[in-house]
């Protein structure tokens, strides 16, 4: 087989990219996600895998897939825009927090301290992408005779166990964190590994050999609401 046809598996390459990035100090890596909307078929597998990975309760969503119709009949098309948290470099949600419970990490991820968040929801109003949701404490087995054990199982956000009892993250604002707990173990975010069309790319933009660094240099790479000056870390290929 000619060399040019031998391609490395994309997932393997991205995993190697993040392993390389993890060897550097946190401040020297900057996580970036690139979503190829031309490859997205709108299957919502990423949304579902995110719900499963982070054990999201009803009403909490980190990565909905927006369906947008283009054109008028008979010339119509559909565009699918998965919308994770943009992990903005200039995040409007951070300065408004009255108790410093949300901040920009050195690796680019906007994190929330569930134990400090008072649940005032000011950050939700400040986010131009509606990327933050409020955990009001609903359960899937509401109105049924028995609360299912799976609902009480802990999630592992931010690298620790959060069982679903009375306390946090119930009453907190929650958002996508690029599966930080997985990243720190050298694994890709759940949405990236689950995408059936391999429409997601992930890596360290500070590493010029990473696939994301190459992709965002293309003229069809855009970011949402550039005019807001938020400098998102999520790019779309259109």
């Amino acid at each position: 087989m000619p060399d040019i046809l031998i391609q490395e598996n994309l997932m393997v390459r991205m995993q190697e990219d993040i392993k390389r990035a993890l060897q550097k100090p946190e401040a020297q890596r900057h996580w970036v996600m690139v979503i190829d909307t031309r490859k997205c078929v709108g299957c919502n597998a990423c949304t579902v895998s995110c719900v499963a990975e982070n054990k999201l309760p009803p009403g909490i969503v980190y990565r909905p897939v927006l369906e947008q119709e283009i054109g008028t009949y008979p010339n119509v098309g559909k565009r699918f825009m998965p919308r994770p948290c943009m992990q903005c470099d200039n995040p409007p949600c951070v300065p408004v927090c009255p108790v410093n419970a949300t901040w920009k990490r050195d690796d680019g991820i906007v994190a929330i301290d569930y134990e400090a968040c008072i649940g005032c929801r000011y950050c939700i109003t400040a986010c131009p992408y509606s990327a933050r949701t409020f955990d009001t404490g609903h359960t899937y087995s509401e109105g049924t005779p028995e609360q299912m054990q799976y609902e009480l199982e802990p999630n592992f956000e931010y690298g620790r166990e959060w069982p679903r009892d009375e306390g946090s993250p119930i009453g907190n604002v929650r958002k996508c964190h690029f599966c930080l707990h997985r990243l720190n173990e050298g694994e890709l975010p759940a949405c990236v590994t689950t995408c059936i069309g391999m429409a997601n790319y992930f890596g360290d933009v500070n590493d010029s050999d990473s696939i994301v660094a190459a992709l965002i240099a293309s003229p069809n790479a855009i970011r949402l609401k550039e005019e807001m000056g938020t400098e998102p870390s999520v790019y779309y290929l259109v």
Binding site: P95, V99, N100, C117, G119, R121, T136, G171, N172
Partner: peptide
């Protein structure tokens, strides 16, 4: 508030960069 029991945090860890 989502966590009324943490209201006092607003005094003890105030972010003066926030209007709140």
């Amino acid at each position: 508030l989502g966590h009324p029991e943490r209201a006092w945090e607003m005094i003890f860890r105030t972010n003066f960069g926030s209007m709140m």
